[in-house]
Design a protein around this nucleic acid. Structure first.
Lengths: 110, 110
DNA sequence: TCGATATTTAAATAATTATCTAAATATATA
DNA sequence: TATATATTTAGATAATTATTTAAATATCGA
């Protein structure tokens, strides 16, 4: 989930998602929308892919990218739970009822 | 909006928001939940504040932080629009119908 | 006013991320 | 098979962000 948040924290990457929302596109086609080298776009696409936000599929010479909404909806869920718009099932409760100086490594919660 | 996304892209900051969701807390109280120096937490609180995600108010010696859900709901809106869960009003359309190599600086869209 | 507590700001450094050019890989086609 | 096209990987560097310790600021209470 952290990967997804980090992937979304970049304007270029959000723009790419927007482009893919319209239709699937090849890496080169995507790159043409930006003033940035193709390797840089490739790097961003890779970040999105690792976050599970897009999928890629080779089609001959080209590599076609498409949106994967699954993870996106998980993140949406995070916001719904947070803003209280969603179902009121889970009682919100922080990691510990009382402040504590645990020296343990932060365990990923979201 | 970019500020908000960047602010949300950090586990510590998301945890802080979670803590503030339960109730308002002072900077020190928040810091006690983390294995991190107070200046670091102060830095994160500042990031959240700049993003408009939290507010602060001095109360005597202490500074009380509270959640500001306004921006959070804007971000939620972004996701709703994106995942198509929201109102179908706006026709999705990328910046340009056809790819173009504009050398202009990226104008912030979201 | 002085000393203690709460918090932030400053300055330095470490860690992460973004970006580029050049080279490598994969596929298509002449 | 050789050449061109599409894309990624490598390696280097620049830019941003996170973190720490030390110092500064603000408030409280004796």
């Amino acid at each position: 989930m952290n990967e997804s948040f980090k992937a979304l924290a970049d304007p270029t990457r959000r723009q790419i998602l927007r482009l893919l929302r319209e239709k699937d596109r090849t890496a080169g086609e995507i790159a043409d929308y930006f003033n940035m080298s193709k390797p840089s776009i490739s790097h961003h696409l890779n970040a999105l892919k690792h976050a599970g936000l897009v999928q890629d599929e080779r089609q001959g010479q080209f590599i076609l990218y498409s949106l994967d909404t699954t993870v996106l909806e998980e993140v949406l869920g995070w916001f719904l739970e947070f803003t209280g718009t969603g179902k009121e099932s889970e009682t919100p409760s922080s990691t510990e009822p009382k402040p504590k100086q645990s020296k343990e490594k932060n365990k990923e919660v979201d």
